[in-house]
Amino acid sequence: MPGPKDLDPSASPRALLGAELRHAREKAGLSQDDLGQRLFVSGSFIGQLEAGTRRMVPEYARLLDEALGTEDFFQRNCGAAAKSKYPEHFAEAAETERNATAIREYASMLIPGLLQTPAYARSVCRAYQPTALEEAIEELVVARMERARILDDPTRPMLWAVIDEAAVRRVTGDRAVMAEVLRHIAGLTRRNRAIVQVLPFDAGAHPAMQGCVKLMDFGDAPPVVYLEGVGTGRLEDDPATVARYRLYYELLTASALSPEKSLVLIETMAQDYAHEEHL
């Protein structure tokens, strides 16, 4: 298993907590696997905590304090590291994707968050929370756009998205909003910043029909998969589970239109939406 990287403790509370965990573990003379056994988790999970790719929750903070003899250090500090601007079920996944070297995502009924525009995101957030205050919706939109800033880096992470045709044809917001978000996706594709495929209706049944799947790879930690439903989501790092969903994703890419044909469809739909808006 690769050793944990050196972390900048000033980068974030999670980075500080990960650095302290590594220090305490090494001081106790334990390997990641040794400590994992005491918490009934994998050594790779401990490595992800140390690398800052997983969020420490109170249950594990208590067990770490007990296993490492750190009194209540991790329990006192995990709260600050766990604070997030994202919904609870998505917070860990959103924070984890910032450290990913590669993200592969399938979205069934909407454009993936990393590819959304503010107007599209606003329409989605309002649909989720029809009675929320405007300020609350705007906070969600700002947080989503901040997530997308990881694509400002010209090469990392590698983003590969498979979007169901339903998401392309479902008018979210209005036709002007759809034209804008599809042009945005086409622009990212043409700049070689994202690989995007559309899964057409005529592809038939497929293994991810019941939800969204996000696979994330890291340079210094094992891969994880994030599985999401309506108002729910969870990260899985079990190797067999990750491998199964990686196979599912490969099957999706095989059934989807090629990136070239997908780009043609996306740009054509953007033009159609723009034209319909002016009729």
Rank of each mutant, 00 (worst) to 15 (best):
A179K: 03
E20S: 13
G187Y: 10
V124C: 04
I163A: 02
A270S: 14
P118N: 05
D72L: 10
E95G: 07
E260V: 02
E228Y: 03
R25V: 11
Q129A: 08
L68H: 04
R122A: 15
F45K: 14
E95W: 01
A221S: 15
M178V: 02
S258N: 09
M216N: 03
Y226N: 07
L159M: 14
A107F: 11
G173K: 04
G29Y: 06
T268I: 00
D6E: 11
A102T: 08
R244M: 12
E180I: 13
P58S: 13
R76K: 15
Y226T: 01
A80Q: 05
G79W: 14
L21Q: 07
L263S: 03
I137R: 02
G29S: 04
C78Q: 14
E66Q: 06
T101S: 13
E146N: 11
Q210F: 07
R98L: 15
P223F: 03
A11K: 12
V198C: 09
Q37G: 12
E180S: 13
T155L: 09
L265A: 00
E105H: 12
D202M: 13
Q37M: 13
R183Y: 15
L16P: 01
H184Q: 13
M209Y: 04
M209Q: 08
R126V: 02
E276R: 00
P157R: 02
I185S: 01
A240W: 08
P58K: 09
G52L: 06
A67Q: 05
